[in-house]
Simulated scan of single mutants.
Amino acid sequence: MKGLKPTVLALCIAGAPPAALAFQPLDETTMGNITGQAGVTIELETKVDIGRFIYTDEGSLSVSDISIGGAERTDFFGYSGLAGTSASDKLDNIKVDIDVYSDGDAVINILPIQFSAVDFRITTGAWELLSTDGSNNQTLLMNNFFAEGVVGRTSIEIDTATDVLNFRGAFAIEVMNFDVPFLAMGVRGLQITGADYDLRRPSPLDLFAEVELDVYRGTRQAGTGDALAIDMPVFRADVGIEEVIVGQHSIGTVFMDDLAVNNTALRIYGH
């Protein structure tokens, strides 16, 4: 079949009697004997723009001009070609491998297609609290959000024995800027790397900060109802800020070496 030309194949199908082309539905026994051995791979290239996102409770939280895409460059943290050789404004070089194993566990691995990191840029406009009672009151929480960085890998596993979704990811943010107008504050040049990344002896192997989350159906602290449970066993990173602005003037820089957040548990539910 490999050498059969498409035109010849089309003629063979066209000339076949209707009975030869009839499809028989598979019974449950036959379907049960069919197993996928290699899983599914999806290669992804995308750019997402959202004019406005609004969450409404009684009042509303509005985020405008959201854009998620590529950083349009390949050099990060002084490493030329860390994000490949082709600059683009799209999230690309992404491969999604999906496998469902014999025990029912599902695993999704999100990896680079080529041996390089996946670059990203996230920007937004105003983050606002808006009244809905006719008073027209509003508060500008944040504005001019901008972040660029790289992702090394991401994996998601759903364990059927425990009903827990486990998320693992590796990322580094080279620059993040934003303003907080209602506090007269701003942040310039926020950077997040792995806790073992040494600026005096930099190595790309230590660049990425690792994060792991367990997500599942949990209970509230009072034990009176269900909640979305998110547990983070440990998160370690180095965090630096080039410039902290208060009242339109810089008050200096900040660096946190080997920041560790341990045994964090969130329970989220409506009220």
Rank of each mutant, 00 (worst) to 15 (best):
T264S: 14
L199W: 08
I268N: 09
P204H: 08
V175D: 07
D206F: 06
L61K: 03
A38N: 14
D257Q: 14
I13T: 11
G36T: 08
P17Y: 09
R236P: 00
L9I: 11
K5R: 10
R220D: 13
F23L: 15
L9T: 09
G194P: 01
G218L: 14
T124R: 01
D89I: 04
I54M: 09
A170K: 04
G225H: 09
R217W: 09
I34Q: 06
L61S: 02
L199E: 13
S102Y: 13
T224W: 13
A209W: 05
P25D: 10
S102W: 13
F23E: 14
P204D: 04
R236A: 12
V254H: 07
I94C: 07
I245K: 03
S131T: 15
A14G: 07
A117K: 02
G70A: 02
L266S: 03
E128S: 10
I173R: 05
N109M: 10
L165Y: 11
Y55M: 05
T160R: 14
T85N: 13
D198W: 07
D196Q: 13
D258A: 14
L91R: 01
A106M: 15
D119W: 01
N143W: 04
G270A: 15
A10T: 14
I50Y: 08
G189L: 11
D257L: 12
D198R: 06
R217I: 12
G134K: 09
I66P: 02
L129H: 07
D198F: 09
S131M: 13
E43A: 08
V48S: 05
G125Q: 03
K2I: 13
I98V: 14
L91T: 03
M176G: 04
Y55C: 00
P6A: 12
I113V: 12
A22P: 00
E174Q: 14
V187R: 01
L228D: 09
L207Q: 03
F182C: 10
L111T: 11
L61N: 03
L11Y: 09
Q138D: 10
S116A: 15
D133R: 04
D49I: 05
